[in-house]
């Protein structure tokens, strides 16, 4: 019933404790936000969940599988995909090619059929392209399908990252500040998009600074501060939690 079960997750960089003993569970189909002041360890948590960095100790269970020791690509194949805070597109590729890459683990064919261009190869390539186009439509950037990724407008780049993550057919989608740098209109569009992704039956873990967005879409909120989980609960509980208010106010006076 829980799709993700994180226990005592810890990550140290040299002497710095980026995350310390963080535990939480996430139910399938929910939108869970991770909030906290800058440097709270949110992105590091994402990196550990997706295998981008190896955690120092602790366990991460995805469905029935322990994934904390698995390499990034294995985790992606099992069904966790992410976007990046600092957008990481394949800028030399077109928009649709970016999404086609995501089908890597879903549609396979062998080397020989590539060289001979066998019938199977062609059908599979066509299905990859059609799927990719569907995901572009889903996030609303199908008009840019043949545009080179680095000439996309800013908002569309963030959408492309989301399409790319979705196209891996993952069960859990991690979104790292999907609205950073966006205006209020774009932000509310992304909010709607996140809801739409949830309707597909996906589980979403969200890092976000925009509190209105967080409170509006989240089923549950986890609060990190200095690498430690200081609160977890429904949006209303978290909003009124004195420790959370303290963490945010405290950090504001520090900056």
């Amino acid at each position: 019933m829980y799709i993700l079960d994180v226990r005592e997750l810890t990550k140290h960089f040299g002497g710095i404790r980026a995350i310390e003993d963080v535990s939480f569970k996430i139910k399938g189909g929910r939108i869970v936000s991770i909030i906290g002041p800058n440097g709270a360890g949110k992105t590091t948590l994402f990196n550990c969940l997706t295998g981008t960095t190896r955690s120092t100790k602790g366990s991460i269970r995805f469905k029935e599988t322990e994934i904390s020791k698995l390499p990034s690509h294995k985790i992606a194949e099992l069904g966790i995909a992410r976007t990046f805070q600092n957008i990481r597109l394949f800028s030399e590729m077109t928009t649709i090619e970016n999404v086609m890459v995501s089908q890597h683990t879903r549609v396979r064919y062998d080397f020989l059929s590539v060289i001979t261009r066998s019938g199977g190869f062609k059908t599979k390539e066509r299905s990859i392209k059609e799927k990719a186009f569907e995901y572009l439509e889903f996030v609303g950037i199908e008009d840019y399908a043949d545009t080179q990724a680095d000439s996309l407008p800013y908002g569309s780049r963030r959408r492309l990252e989301i399409a790319r993550a979705l196209a891996t057919e993952a069960h859990i989608i991690l979104l790292d500040e999907p609205t950073a740098g966006m205006n209020p209109i774009e932000t509310s569009e992304v909010m709607a998009l996140i809801k739409k992704i949830q309707e597909l039956g996906k589980t979403i873990i969200l890092i976000e600074h925009d509190m209105k967005l967080v409170m509006g879409v989240s089923d549950r909120i986890i609060v990190l501060d200095h690498g430690v989980k200081i609160a977890e609960g429904l949006p209303d509980d978290v909003r009124n939690n004195p420790m959370v208010i303290e963490a945010y106010l405290g950090s504001e006076t520090n900056h």
Partner: peptide, 19 residues
């Protein structure tokens, strides 16, 4: 496509399932 994605952004490539 896997090769080119590695050149363009290795971290993103592996996060999409490319070994």
């Amino acid at each position: 496509r896997a090769w080119i994605s590695i050149k363009e952004n290795e971290i993103a490539a592996s996060s999409l399932g490319i070994n």
